[in-house]
Simulated scan of single mutants.
Amino acid sequence: MMGDYYGVGVGFKPEHFQSIIETQPDLGFFEVHAENYMGDGGAPHRMLGALREKFQLSIHGVGLSLGTMGELDQHHLHRLKTVVDRYQPALVSEHLAWSSHDEAKNLVFLNDLLPIPYTQETLDRVVEHVDQTQTTLGRQILVENPSTYVAFTDTQMSEIEFITQMQKRTGCGLILDVNNVYISANNQKMDAYAYLDAFPTHAVGEIHLAGHAEDVDDDGQPLLIDAHDRQVAPDVWSLYRHVIQNTGETTTLIEWDNDVPDWPTLYKEALAAKNLMAGIGASTHAAQ
Rank of each mutant, 00 (worst) to 15 (best):
G61H: 03
G61K: 01
V62H: 00
G63A: 12
G63E: 04
G63R: 07
L64E: 03
L64N: 03
S65K: 03
S65H: 02
L66K: 00
L66T: 00
L66Q: 00
G67R: 01
T68L: 07
T68N: 02
M69H: 11
M69T: 14
E71W: 04
L72W: 10
L72M: 14
L72G: 10
D73F: 09
D73Q: 08
D73A: 13
Q74Y: 05
H75T: 14
H76I: 05
H76L: 08
H76R: 08
L77E: 03
L77V: 06
L77Q: 01
L77D: 00
L77P: 03
K81H: 10
V84A: 04
D85I: 13
R86G: 03
Y87S: 01
Y87D: 04
Y87H: 04
Q88P: 08
Q88S: 13
P89A: 07
P89L: 07
A90Y: 10
A90C: 11
L91Y: 03
V92H: 02
V92N: 00
S93H: 04
S93E: 08
E94I: 13
E94N: 07
H95Y: 05
H95E: 07
H95N: 09
H95T: 10
L96D: 01
W98E: 00
W98K: 01
W98C: 03
S99V: 05
S99K: 00
S99M: 05
S99T: 07
S100Y: 02
S100R: 01
H101L: 12
H101V: 09
E103G: 01
A104C: 06
K105V: 09
K105R: 13
N106C: 11
N106D: 09
N106Q: 14
N106P: 01
L107E: 06
F109M: 10
F109G: 07
F109N: 14
L110T: 11
L110H: 14
N111F: 08
N111L: 11
N111E: 15
D112E: 15
D112V: 14
L113S: 12
L113P: 08
L113C: 13
L114I: 15
P115C: 12
I116D: 06
I116N: 03
I116Q: 07
P117D: 13
P117R: 09
Y118L: 08
Y118K: 03
Q120W: 05
E121V: 04
E121T: 10
E121A: 13
T122C: 12
L123R: 00
L123V: 06
D124C: 05
D124P: 01
D124H: 05
R125G: 00
V126F: 06
V126Q: 04
E128H: 15
E128F: 15
E128L: 13
E128K: 12
E128I: 04
E128S: 13
H129R: 05
H129A: 09
V130S: 03
V130R: 02
V130A: 06
D131E: 15
D131S: 14
Q132V: 09
Q132D: 14
Q132E: 15
Q132H: 12
T135A: 15
T135W: 04
T135F: 09
